[in-house]
Nucleic acid binder design. Sequence first.
DNA 1: GTCTATAGCAGGATAGAC
DNA 2: GTCTATCCTGCTATAGAC
Lengths: 211, 211
Amino acid sequence: MEAKGRDVLAKDRILDKAEELFAQNGYFAVSIRQITAAAECNLAAVNYHFGNKKNLYLEVFRLRWIPRARRIHDTFIGILGTKNEPSLRDILHSLATAFIEGPLTDDERERHHQLIARELAKPIGGLDIVASQIHQPFFNELSDLVKECLPEGQNEQELMLKLFSVFSMLTFFNFSRELVTIITNYQYDQAFKARLVNHIADSCSSGIAYK
Amino acid sequence: MEAKGRDVLAKDRILDKAEELFAQNGYFAVSIRQITAAAECNLAAVNYHFGNKKNLYLEVFRLRWIPRARRIHDTFIGILGTKNEPSLRDILHSLATAFIEGPLTDDERERHHQLIARELAKPIGGLDIVASQIHQPFFNELSDLVKECLPEGQNEQELMLKLFSVFSMLTFFNFSRELVTIITNYQYDQAFKARLVNHIADSCSSGIAYK
DNA sequence: GTCTATAGCAGGATAGAC
DNA sequence: GTCTATCCTGCTATAGAC
């Protein structure tokens, strides 16, 4: 039993460190040697547990990124559930809160967004997995929620663009922190995040409701 | 004179191919061998002309990215100059047009945004150069332009966030095309880009003017 | 300035002992 | 399952001929 217990732990340690390093530095900048050293296990362990480096990378998305995306989603649904007949702004505020102040630790959130940002810029396998399992269903769900707050007969195309705009802000403010900080000198402390959430909710709800 | 002429060309060819490859694949995924092969010159040419790989990468930003950002900026100012007393929407429409349908070819635009997207996710030297020479002054300029369309006494912090929101959309729709296409099935053809420009102008102007 | 050749090193992957 | 040792490939960078 000890042997089996250690296995699982070694595999998990590799996944954790691999995710951290891939997020920080990108797939090609990270070596198996770095990963196994950080995970305090043997060099051969990656090939033993995951076959090869590429599959380890994909498993990071399957076994770490997706479950975390589900936690954010569930947090969003949870916050939204506390409101009676939520307004458009309620929906967006819940969404922004889940994304920016949600269930993830700061480290987790940073990793989460860096991983997807890399895939958005240059997909090397993770985006396909994540788009079909998370983004596609989530956009549909969100679209249905938002439609209930809008007059009938919304243009579907237009609505999609609006949802992407929300998503663009959530993504940008989460993963371009460096630029935001360089330009404004604001640190991402609790006060600034709360301000961001309100800004996104306000600005997106007026953006979606226009016309 | 032929000799000197060839030098300049070789250096330029290296810069062009380096930019293309760095944009597509990221700094670490690209080798000097790939670059010199694509530029049809000798392996040693990179070290001769640029010292080392890292400096070649930075020169791509200094000699290629920044001049192109200036072209986009000048296009924006040019379009804006055709309007008398431009409204907020005029400003944003000109800006979105310059970014999404502007002076760059499709290839140039793709490279431009992929390069900066990578630096936003994980700066390795390019962002510092670009933020100080382009973003910082541009945000200030844009801020002044927008203020003329808004009532006095705008909150500076709030205005900065609003400008970042515009920037987030411009960036997202330019560099997350893969995701947009996966989810919506829209290709980035001329019609879709025009639609995007209008969407961004409408949605951002109502977002900025709210309250 | 350009090229060939190569030094010197780091990477992914695997074989085989334990 | 874990570990060591190692193969082989590909990389950056440079020395030195032309």
